[in-house]
Design a protein around this nucleic acid. Sequence first.
DNA 1: CAAACAAAAGTGGTCAGACCATCATTCCAG
DNA 2: CTGGAATGATGGTCTGACCACTTTTGTTTG
Lengths: 248, 248
Amino acid sequence: MRDLAPIAKAPSLVDQVCSQLAARLHPSVPPSPSPHSPHTPHSPQSPPPSRLPSERTLASQLGVSRSVLREAIKKLELQGLLEIHQGRGTKIVSQLQKPLTAALSLLVPDPSSRLAQLFEIRLLLEPESARLAALRASPTHLQKLDASLHALRTAPSLEAAIHADLDFHRILADASGNKILLLIIESLADLLAASHGKGFQSMSTARSADMHETILHAIRHRDDSAAETAMQEHLLAARAALGLPPSP
Amino acid sequence: MRDLAPIAKAPSLVDQVCSQLAARLHPSVPPSPSPHSPHTPHSPQSPPPSRLPSERTLASQLGVSRSVLREAIKKLELQGLLEIHQGRGTKIVSQLQKPLTAALSLLVPDPSSRLAQLFEIRLLLEPESARLAALRASPTHLQKLDASLHALRTAPSLEAAIHADLDFHRILADASGNKILLLIIESLADLLAASHGKGFQSMSTARSADMHETILHAIRHRDDSAAETAMQEHLLAARAALGLPPSP
DNA sequence: CAAACAAAAGTGGTCAGACCATCATTCCAG
DNA sequence: CTGGAATGATGGTCTGACCACTTTTGTTTG
């Protein structure tokens, strides 16, 4: 009868395993080139330990049954931290936007109205994303943006062009420094990509690249206001090209 | 060799069960009084069938093992469609913002910087939410907003005040008509609520209620511009009261 | 009779071991 | 050297049992 004040209920076994696994996952992903990097110095050809041991192995390591370990892994997969492939093992990834993407697909099943609502949100978030990027973008970000722009101009296929296009927006959101903003925009990008190739035409690659260049130019010169405006115009043009109605 | 064009892989059993359950969830209320209805015809007082049969029952109904059924249920729980309670059964709910909330908690573990980024996003989304609400709010929405305002003014405790406050914002987002906007704002509200009571002080209830009233007044008069501005000022004041830095 | 306690039933949580489906590798025949 | 057939490894599914928690029920007790 010692502990009565804290109504802390013991977390379920699955949750405990989840926490342990999550703790083992995070420290491996972040790009922290700390001088340590002491782990796994024995494997000369597995750059990122981006794979999880087999279920049976992990289960016995953690001292739980395979059922529990499986449920924990499934949970982490739903959260976008793992990718399970039958026969191939479980990879460690970092796609936290996946849960949001799934929820939005479920929330607005109709692709057309989903696209319309998507652009309403993009028009709110991305101009600010561009503005913040103009203020905060690092040299690395500028370099990546340039590479993305080049990839868009030289895209060999429509699919590649779409990928490069959305990548530009992702890098921009990353440069904004707001991680929540990044996550939401990444999710919107996922949904956009899923909508393409389903009868939805986008604007020409060349025109899109031009607008990206305008945005990038503004960011290079730290002109946050111009970047914001350019992004807004870009999105308005993209929405119009999709045949979607303007905002009220 | 018939189907070769669509590389549609057969979905796993768990996914199939997920789909079946999801289909059974949405139209949970709708009139599907199939002539069968063999189960529990003896309970005359269970108004909403907001509960799922037991795992063993469901598993045999769907013709799958309990393991598969469990994994499917867990998946739906993570998506915010179910709530599992040991010994009490599984309830049907609809909280699609839960996955996003979880992802954001994981993405920005530090409550302080999370709150800062949260307000950056709120300042982008909620003024537009208020603007759209001014254009689209139905009489029912106005009524709910009024009730929420009254609840805020007469809140007996700080906790109740916070709940009423966030509820106002939720109703507003609902009135905006953009479901994606609603989902994101609901998630932000969840995180806000979780942050309160952890050393974070908010502005006084009376002042908050006054600002809500200003917003509601603008919405009643369909003055979208005024509603947008009032919401922006409300959020700026709330952020300042929290001691957070202004946007760059 | 009513309230309090104890037993029973129902629920999700965990475990163990087995077998199936899919993928990667290895190895042998050509 | 190439191709495909065995082999191994991995995740997917099944079964049945037992544990932990909650609700209901039934009895006991005041």
